[in-house]
Write a protein that binds this DNA or RNA. Structure first.
Length: 291
DNA sequence: CACTTGACCTGTCCGC
DNA sequence: TGCGGACAGGTCAAGT
């Protein structure tokens, strides 16, 4: 699923495509994905205008003129895709939308917006969800209470980074990176990519990683996620942006899903192992475990 | 406690 | 071709 860069790209796309539009009606194809009561739908959703789209960690927030907000988590396979038939050029046209027919098998919720626009929430695995709550109560969500700082903010310094990892000194570094309460937004792809960049074995205990490597990791986390945003995110299976386009970061990836290929730094063969219960890609030469 | 495992779901891929 | 099992970008709860 979308990690921070992918959610950021979706946010930017939605900002461009749906802010200012009104929600006219919606079709809920899978209740499990849409945790909103019928009363709330009628009172706070239908007829409301979309006023802003925001992101915090991997959570998307769509603010409405009703004083309520939609909170959306895409989890592993969620997509938010905007379609406006008027923008399509027609089959065969070189600029035609690469969008397939929507809704499709994975569509869970279909929003009918003004100006003939549709917003589709697709989610093959049904792990994702949409909630509706008063905008003022968003900061009270348990998720918002415990989630760590945004690592791409200018104000997030290397000292902040080091301080956040202190309390996890006995954890494996990859587990700590994936823990959203330490810092926000890192998932499996960018954990592997940044650990390779900092030449740290993912199973190293945080407290045993040399300070210089921890500082390097701070830089690498920011580097790989900023680069990914530049490249439109990573599409390894399902990810698409709000326009239905794939991201290209994985063609720049150094280790993620590159087992069997050679390490760009030392040419040794990249291997896939298991760390913190997740598939993990490393260069066995560059990334030596610190014991 | 801190960490690991299983669960949530559907789809795909790989080996037999 | 069919079938079983492992695995997939995330996050909880439950178990050790």
């Amino acid at each position: 699923m979308p990690e921070l860069p992918e959610v950021e790209i979706v946010k930017r796309g939605l900002k461009e495509l749906i802010v200012g539009k009104m929600i006219q009606k919606l079709d809920i194809l899978t209740d499990k994905s849409f945790l909103v009561s019928q009363e709330d739908i009628q009172q706070f959703l239908i007829g409301a205008q979309i006023t802003a789209v925001k992101r915090r960690a991997k959570l998307l927030l769509i603010d409405l003129s009703s004083g309520y907000s939609l909170a959306i988590h895409l989890k592993m396979t969620g997509q938010l895709i905007v379609d406006n038939p008027a923008d399509r050029f027609g089959a065969g046209h070189p600029n035609d939308s690469f969008l397939g027919t929507l809704p499709d098998r994975s569509t869970r919720v279909e929003f009918w917006l003004s100006e003939n626009t549709k917003l589709y929430f697709n989610d093959q695995r049904k792990f994702g969800w949409i909630k509706l709550l008063p905008t003022a109560e968003v900061p009270d969500l348990p998720f918002m209470q415990k989630v760590g700082p945004e690592p791409l903010k200018k104000s997030f310094t290397v000292d902040d980074f080091l301080e956040r990892f202190e309390r996890r000194s006995r954890s494996m570094i990859k587990a700590a990176l994936l823990d959203q309460s330490v810092i926000a937004g890192v998932g499996n792809i960018y954990a592997d990519e940044s650990l390779w960049g900092a030449e740290i074995h993912p199973a190293s205990l945080v407290g045993l990683v040399p300070l210089e490597k921890m500082k390097k990791l701070y830089q690498e986390v920011r580097f790989v996620m900023n680069l990914s945003i530049e490249k439109g995110g990573s599409t390894s299976r399902n990810y698409l942006n709000a326009k239905g386009e794939r991201g290209s970061y994985l063609s720049f990836a150094r280790v993620f899903r590159r087992e069997g290929q050679s390490c760009p730094r030392c040419q040794q063969e990249i291997i896939k192992i298991r760390v913190a219960g997740r598939g993990t890609h490393i260069c066995p030469v560059c990334q030596i475990k610190t014991k």
